[in-house]
Design a protein around this nucleic acid. Structure first.
Lengths: 238, 238
DNA sequence: GCCTGTATAATTGTATACAATTAATGTGAC
DNA sequence: GTCACATTAATTGTATACAATTATACAGGC
């Protein structure tokens, strides 16, 4: 009896370690695991997700697996057929293109509202970010630039002061995260991107909502164009 | 032993009855139940959602409750703090306004893509819907009109041929469902709405994507304006 | 062969048991 | 009184047990 108890404790310790720093609950860990697997193409569209197999694979019980699957279902990453199972839905290139089109509109809206509502402190933060972007663009530090890009847009989301808009944009970003990472890793695009960020910042500073919206929408559209030229190059290389 | 078994069977029969025609799983039933309670204001922002209490209230175990809560969390309707609990987030009037603004953009995009991609069959279906709308507008049958409105937009979502756009619009519609129901229940608005629907249909038929987008965006914007004038009237009444 | 029904296995759906964490309650020192 | 600390209760997190449904395999009839 005693041994059994201890083995359970040891088991739970093992997970605490596995999750390392993250003290989140298992279902969020499972959610991220499966989501990444789908977004990275390890789980392919049409693949069946069997709860017991996932539970074995991740070393957890079915309960957190199910919780995660219910969330993936809502995100549209999997499709669940009651009493039968769930299959991976995946994200096609067409989906990513659509997301960028949608993002360009919604980011534009965020910039418009931000221009109307931003306070001095957030404005100052934006300015700092742009300055740091200049610095790291000169240094070709793409990791820092990607982080700053995320922060720049994040500040604007917050400044737009719309819970729902921020929520939607956060979700969309997660979908294209992988695509985004590669996007800035081209010096020319980094320079162009810097100029666009500066223009957007200036429009917001001048409280020119229409201009901020236009520039931001263009900025996102250019990002997807850049992404296309990248993948075309990759295809040529292959 | 036998009695125990039977009581369990009886219990599950009871649920089959409770859910009546719907053969969905309990978690989806719970999800809808809590979502409606939040959207209707029965559960107010800040309220704590305790799993055991909900389980008692709905006569189910904690498992489906948890699955539903995880989904509500992703929708942003509740906020979950690990190991502490979840609190209702709710949907404010500002949120609804924001959703309409976002919807006007995304519905516009859907109309644009629909104009470019719709096939003859869907076009015919749209035409039929508009004709039925004329009929029921004359008859002042608001329930039928609301249904037709849903169908009209649904056909356009499908015709836009974008999985992600359709998914997002479906979600947005759920949020404002309650607001929408009241919207058409004013004869004048119904007539105006009919004209707008006809114009949108014609633009799509002519494959005029830009015009379809513009008209649709305006259509949704007018809906929220109409909604505002309604609530103002209500406030005057009180 | 191929349909059809039937037993069996696999899988999902739900409930419950137990562990871990957090909230509350109470008790003694000062 | 109130602070600190221990104790208990309430609640969430996870695992497991069992029920219900669906898929699979197989035998017999035609």
């Amino acid at each position: 009896m005693e041994e059994f108890e201890e083995s359970r404790v040891a088991k739970s310790k093992r997970f605490a370690k596995m999750q390392s720093l993250e003290r989140y609950s298992l279902h969020s860990y499972v959610f991220n695991y499966i989501r990444d697997a789908i977004l990275n193409g390890r789980y392919k569209p049409g693949d069946a997700l069997v709860e017991t197999k996932l539970a074995d694979e991740l070393g957890v019980s079915r309960t957190p697996i199910r919780e995660a699957i219910r969330q993936l279902e809502l995100e549209g990453l999997v499709i669940s057929i009651p009493n039968k199972g769930v299959v991976v839905n995946g994200v096609s290139q067409q989906d990513i293109d659509d997301i960028y089109t949608i993002r360009s509109m919604l980011e534009g809206l965020a910039a418009r509202w931000a221009a109307q509502r931003i306070d001095e402190q957030a404005l100052k933060e934006l300015e700092e970010i742009v300055e740091l972007m200049e610095y790291y663009t000169r240094k070709n530090d793409f990791d820092q630039l990607t982080q700053l890009d995320t922060r720049f847009h994040g500040v604007i989301y917050d400044a737009s002061d719309s819970k729902v808009l921020k929520h939607m944009l956060d979700n969309l970003l997660r979908y294209v995260e992988r695509a985004r990472r590669g996007s800035l890793k081209v010096p020319m695009r980094a320079h162009q991107s810097l100029n666009e960020h500066r223009s957007i910042f200036e429009a917001i500073m001048k409280r020119d909502a229409a201009e901020a919206e236009r520039l931001m929408a263009e900025h996102i559209s250019r990002a997807i164009l850049n992404l296309h030229s990248l993948t075309e190059q990759d295809e040529e290389k292959d």
